[in-house]
């Protein structure tokens, strides 16, 4: 997994609440059996005027000029700013894969849906929760040209161009995995003996669970 330490990047502001995973990556792309290549289909229904599918070359489609990410000023953005309950809906990890494949490294919002939040950490992708008024302030400032933030995961801070420093909380285990780019399965398998001990005890208590 790609480690996440300090990222400075252009901010794209998506001023919507309840951005659901169906909107982030529509169902037709879930038929792919790969983990990569979803970037061109990120926010597909909003981003293009004509319908798309896995076998349609995105370069041949008509971009929706009204959609924020299509504005030239946001080209190369790596930090997404959004509103409440980002990533709600389905468990599809493809939503995180699409954001990451597009080039985003992090999303800042006042709140996230649980599964999306969880999925993010498995992909070197950082969801940052800030208070609603702090997010409001960022939305106001992000109107400025070339608005960049610096995300410092080890220090747990977001620094604005004017030098204002906002702190965010993160679970220490998740932070450690992300900063070091650790393979969580490998870590868990170091506890194989504990898992086997649990199974032995549980099998005696509740044998029907192991039938």
């Amino acid at each position: 997994m790609q480690p996440f330490t300090v990222v400075t990047g252009l901010v794209a502001a998506l001023d919507r609440a309840n951005v659901d995973t169906d909107a982030i990556i529509p169902k037709q792309y879930l038929k792919s059996i790969k983990r990569t290549g979803f970037g061109p289909f990120l926010f597909d229904d909003w981003r293009y005027l004509d319908p798309g599918d896995l076998d349609i070359d995105p370069a041949t489609r008509r971009a929706n000029p009204d959609f924020v990410l299509n504005q030239p000023r946001y080209r190369g953005a790596s930090i997404l700013l959004a509103r409440e309950n980002f990533g709600c809906g389905s468990s599809r990890e493809h939503a995180v894969w699409a954001l990451a494949d597009y080039g985003f490294r992090a999303v800042i919002a006042p709140g996230f849906a649980d599964i999306f939040f969880n999925n993010s950490f498995k992909n070197g992708f950082l969801p940052i929760v800030l208070a609603p008024d702090e997010v409001d302030a960022l939305f106001r400032e992000a109107g400025a040209a070339d608005y960049r933030l610096t995300l410092d995961l080890p220090a747990q801070t977001v620094t604005t161009p004017s030098g204002r420093v906002l702190r965010f909380d993160i679970d220490p285990f998740r932070k450690d995995c992300l900063v070091r780019g650790l393979d969580e399965i490998g870590l868990t398998l170091q506890q194989a003996d504990a898992i086997r001990a649990y199974e032995a005890r549980r099998r005696a208590e509740a044998p029907w669970l192991f039938a």
């Binding site: 983990r35 990890e93 599964i115 285990f173 969580e184 399965i185 868990t188 398998l189 898992i195």
Partner: peptide, 22 residues
Amino acid sequence: FGIGTSEVEHALATQTLVQKKA
């Protein structure tokens, strides 16, 4: 509860998941 694909792999490989209590 629902999980993402990385956790599907984790559950397959280890029969466990790292979870935070709700």
